[in-house]
Nucleic acid binder design. Structure first.
Lengths: 259, 259
DNA sequence: TAGATTGTTAATCGATTAACAATC
DNA sequence: TAGATTGTTAATCGATTAACAATC
């Protein structure tokens, strides 16, 4: 938190507490816009012309008051007594999220996860274009993954610059993540989606979002344990004198290649 | 929101607003415990005996006031003027998260992502044991992935029951996710980690957490756009009369198999 | 005792929600 | 006009943070 480098704060806050500039859409609302968009797109495909806040909220898995409040930050796009025009709302939300433009991304680290992401259909359909797949393992170079040749990480800087890549996806092992991140940032990337289980340090102005399998599972385990505890009842049995064994060891490798 | 089925609320809330029972640890704190645990485990491996809230907070990427507040929900495990005993804290957090017990999980849908998860080292090291890999494609049955044979989804119910699986990971295409979810829940699974881009409906008492690639990227794009907007300055140019084209289409496939 | 650092308080901030007036 | 549904208000709740007394 010193040195002019900021460290991502909570698991997923991006850089911005800054009520995101302009009119200022709250972070919690921004995080839900993609959910609404997905539900709306499904309605659009079924040629449903309009939808009420109640229906759309149910489809997106939120309550309707929250949805209306969220939409109120975007403007008044509904019609009282009627609902929202599906197509129009799809467009407005897409525009708000920046999905009406082209976003070239690079994926660094082409292990199983990198593969999975490269093949992910949700990419292309939302304005995200895979500009390159990069891996530190020269043996992978040239190999086709999802129709694209894997290229060596030596080419990272050149690709980021020439393709004007502003978003980088890191699927390397944790040990390589910070270094890859530094290089991406130095080359001009200002948003990073990090799948490596590491805290990345980035300069101000760079957003980092983190996806962490292990953390999600641990949170589930916590709740699962509490459910089981309903039967046992945790009679606040105090702390055993000795820490004992059972200490969890860190063996966090998400992928094998790259760096 | 009717029928006794609850729908997961925000992207990642699990079922519990219930200040998680007992002493009641806030959800935001629970979500950070794995981060602290990771940082502590790294210190433990370097044989660091004690750590201050300031140091640990920096390593975990949070501020120290938040960390101390978080720890205060667990108990008073520090020593004023000294800091926290690393090993002891690792043990306490592990215990709190339920990681000192064995959690058998099944992964349903063995495409690239299922592969990546099966190979994920962070699993085994934290008490999570892959009890089975399941896929609806019979052609995959018997094939070894991460040393385990893929089994047909027909065996799902039997495996969940016999292995006492309470956590299921869904990496199927979106179309199959709800059905797979229903079967898992019917068989006894009470926590689900969903990678398919679908809102899952589950009965009360079942926790769902969602990991969604596309959503994370869209949130990054939003912030990225705002950064660019600093130059252009969005002079509140009002809504174009016609929605126009550029409508984003839904082609969300995360994987190919299963269901 | 002096220095360091925790654990807690209290203020602030942001997010959620119910309720309802506005209005189609 | 009557019915439906939005957009907004205001109350509530939960999370963050700085500051500092307690205490090692």
């Amino acid at each position: 938190m010193a040195t002019g480098r900021s460290t991502q704060n909570n698991p997923n806050a991006a850089a911005s507490n800054r009520r995101s500039r302009g009119r200022g859409i709250p972070d919690a609302t921004v995080a839900r816009l993609p959910l609404y968009l997905r539900a709306l797109t499904a309605l659009s495909e079924r040629s449903v012309p309009t939808v009420s806040s109640e229906e759309l909220a149910a489809a997106a898995g939120v309550n309707s008051a929250k949805l209306r409040k969220d939409f109120s930050y975007l403007g008044s796009y509904g019609t009282r007594g009627v609902g929202y025009d599906v197509e129009y709302l799809v467009y407005q939300i897409s525009r708000e999220l920046g999905l009406t433009q082209d976003w070239p991304v690079v994926i660094v680290g082409i292990g199983n996860l990198g593969h999975a992401l490269a093949n992910y259909g949700g990419f292309a359909s939302r304005g995200f274009r895979v500009a390159a797949l990069l891996d530190a393992d020269a043996a992978l170079s040239g190999q086709l993954v999802a129709g694209l040749p894997v290229r060596h990480t030596d080419e990272m800087e050149e690709i980021v610059r020439s393709e004007r890549v502003s978003i980088g996806v890191i699927t390397t092992p944790p040990g390589a993540a910070q270094q890859v991140c530094d290089r991406l940032v130095a080359a001009g990337v200002t948003s990073i989606l990090n799948f490596a289980p590491t805290v990345l340090n980035v300069p101000d102005g760079v957003d980092v979002r983190k996806v962490d399998l292990s953390i999600e599972l641990q949170i589930l385990a916590f709740h699962e344990q509490r459910k089981a505890g309903d039967d046992l009842d945790d009679a606040d049995q105090e702390v055993p004198a000795t820490p004992s064994a059972a200490v969890v060891s860190e063996g966090t490798e998400l992928e094998e290649a790259a760096g």
